[in-house]
Design a protein around this nucleic acid. Sequence first.
RNA 1: CGCGGGGUAGAGCAGUUCGGUAGCUCGUCGGGCUCAUAACCCGGAGGUCGAGGGUUCAAGUCCCUCCCCCGCAA
Length: 315
Amino acid sequence: MRIVFLGTPDFGVPSLEALIREGHEVVAAFTQPDRPKGRGKKMESCPVKVCALAHDIPVYQPVKIRQESVEDLKALAPDLCVTAAFGQILSQEILDIPRIGTVNVHSSLLPKYRGSSPINWAVICGETVTGVTTMMTDKGMDTGDILLQKEVEILPGETAGELTDRLAVIGADLLIETIRQLEKGICPRVPQDHEKMSYYPMLKKEMGLVDWQMDAHDIVCRIRGLSPWPGTYTFVKGEMLKIWQGMEEEATTGLPGDILEADSKKGLLVKAGKNAVRVHELQAQGGKRMKATDYLRGHPITVNACDKNEEMRHE
RNA sequence: CGCGGGGUAGAGCAGUUCGGUAGCUCGUCGGGCUCAUAACCCGGAGGUCGAGGGUUCAAGUCCCUCCCCCGCAA
């Protein structure tokens, strides 16, 4: 099968590798253009590009695929296009090019969690089950007909990053099975129940700012859901502190945001709306991530007595 | 050349302004106290101060070069 692969970040790599491993003829890979990244504004290739080049697959990096790549795609004459976290919207004109169609690997149980960050949102919303879906891409945002779907349990304490790694592999397997069934003409194809759809927006940096009015359970889900990017943070004495890991702990005293415990032995405990968040792992500006107890050894934080030291209260 | 913080004992930090015996908290090892401890007391071990070069009687500290880690921004 002549396949054109479209994907950008790590999530797409297992799918691309699976296609190659299965002996499909991957004739091209499309990814987002290289962008200045990291500290020194160095240009960096995305994971899918690196993978494609390693397998001698031609790489295309249009800024806007709809405008630049229609002729290229036609010339490639694919039987099938496969997308996995590509990052650009395909036009109908492009969707009409592949003989069979365009299959998208989406990391949620559609129609739930449409949008660009389904894994993060599933964790943020406190789900215990999510999954991957293969679908026939249509013009809408993750609205196409569902082909195959697989449920995956979200493990306790699992972060979005960890879950992404797992779903990427599971998604690759599902993709291979989907293509197998498409080739035989036995692949189911059912429209989404649009009544049950949910859509969540792209993640923004600001979403990582902890609102201590929220219940501890929700804050912990957010910490997990935004890890490793964009990360969760709060302010202590005017300095930003990233929170990498935390757990809910029962607490009835104090006001939201109060530091109930800050001890290099006991650790760091911050009051939330309901209950409190035990901060296990954090990271100060310029520092590396470390256990809260280690941090407190060298950075003593005063315990808020709830109604004094108002200026020390973090936001 | 995008902005910025940092590398000192196993861990987390202070010390660098203004050169002059390597410090703190914790851990660890040994001893003591206690019905008891994430408690307390006494004692010990453990450091090429990221690397190299330079200045100096003397460099963690001043000068030059390099390596590594991290936050912002994108």
